[in-house]
């Protein structure tokens, strides 16, 4: 037999003298692990079903409009091409589905399977642990919220139907990203805040649905049946979607009468409310 120099070595236990990444590395590792967990990566097929469905639903409107533009763009009238901000509205079902069915996975699972006490025995603190979870949820939700409008922007640009100049192009991009991030921030705060109140994912999803759909129903009844002001729409987290048209100097039909300052206040109010519940709950949780 030829001697190729290969050996089997018992490595035993080795001391580690290298550098340690500290809190930053811990946050990065938990955020990445949580992102994979939310998307079902590295897990059984059944854990991938919801994320895949949500991603497909989120991107379909943008892809359809893009396809129409590519195939019969010359025949379409300008009115049929949606505004960029309208793409947030087309994929809002997917965004809400994600916030209710997928995002709770980010924090509920750790409390249920004992990972929380292990995480808190590492360089993470309660604050940095929550930060890692927020980063993961924000990042993942951003894919389905900001991804479709940006895909549409790129598609229209390649079809020479995008914004006029370079500066205008980046302005549209910035407005899409900022308004998308504000929508994602509201839904992340509501989703994680509600999920922090229970150890069961199903209950967390029901709680998020109650807040999202319940508040939407109540405000719709108050406005459309009881004749209340459109400003009452601020009582629902869905009011965050109005940020996008305001960013482009426009108004959606459902909120024409609502002042922009109220839209901004409602957006930050929902972020503050959800974050406060999340922070209050995790400050109270026992560690070990």
């Amino acid at each position: 037999m030829a001697d190729n120099g290969a050996q089997i070595l018992d490595r035993g236990y080795r001391r580690y003298e290298g550098s340690r990444s500290g809190t930053v590395g811990a946050v990065r590792s938990v955020a990445w692990h949580t992102t994979r967990s939310i998307l079902g990566l590295g897990r059984k097929a059944r854990h991938k079903i919801f994320p895949v469905i949500v991603v497909v639903i989120a991107f379909i409107p943008a892809i359809v409009f893009l396809g129409l533009t590519v195939l019969i763009g010359d025949l379409l009238e300008d009115e049929l091409q949606p505004e960029y901000w309208e793409l947030f509205g087309f994929s809002n079902v997917a965004i809400v589905l994600f916030a209710t069915l997928v995002a709770p996975e980010a924090i509920v699972r750790d409390r249920r399977d004992g990972m929380l006490s292990l995480y808190l025995s590492t360089p993470l603190t309660r604050s940095t642990y929550v930060a890692a979870k927020v980063i993961a949820t924000l990042g993942t939700m951003s894919i389905i919220t900001i991804g479709p409008p940006i895909l549409a922007l790129l598609g229209y640009t390649f079809q020479s139907q995008g914004p006029g100049g370079v500066l205008e192009w980046f302005e549209v991009l910035a407005k899409l990203v900022v308004s998308g991030l504000l929508i994602v921030a509201v839904l992340t705060a509501v989703s994680l805040g509600a999920s922090s109140l229970t150890d069961r994912r199903a209950f967390a999803s029901v709680a998020v649905i109650m807040i999202m759909i319940g508040s939407l129903t109540v405000t719709a009844v108050l406005i459309n049946v009881a004749g209340g002001s459109q400003s009452l729409g601020a009582l629902s987290p869905f009011s965050a979607f109005e940020v996008a048209p305001r960013m482009f100097g426009d108004r959606s039909e459902d909120a024409e009468e609502v002042e922009t300052w109220l839209v901004v206040a409602a957006t930050f109010g929902w972020i503050a409310a959800g974050s406060s519940v999340l922070w209050w709950k995790y400050r109270r949780l026992g560690a070990v």
Partner: peptide, 18 residues
């Protein structure tokens, strides 16, 4: 606390694992 926990390993009593 953060520096301490970087140097300390911990095995919890609870038998819950993912």
């Amino acid at each position: 606390g953060t520096e301490v926990r970087a140097l300390v390993g911990y095995g919890p009593e609870r038998n819950l694992l993912p």
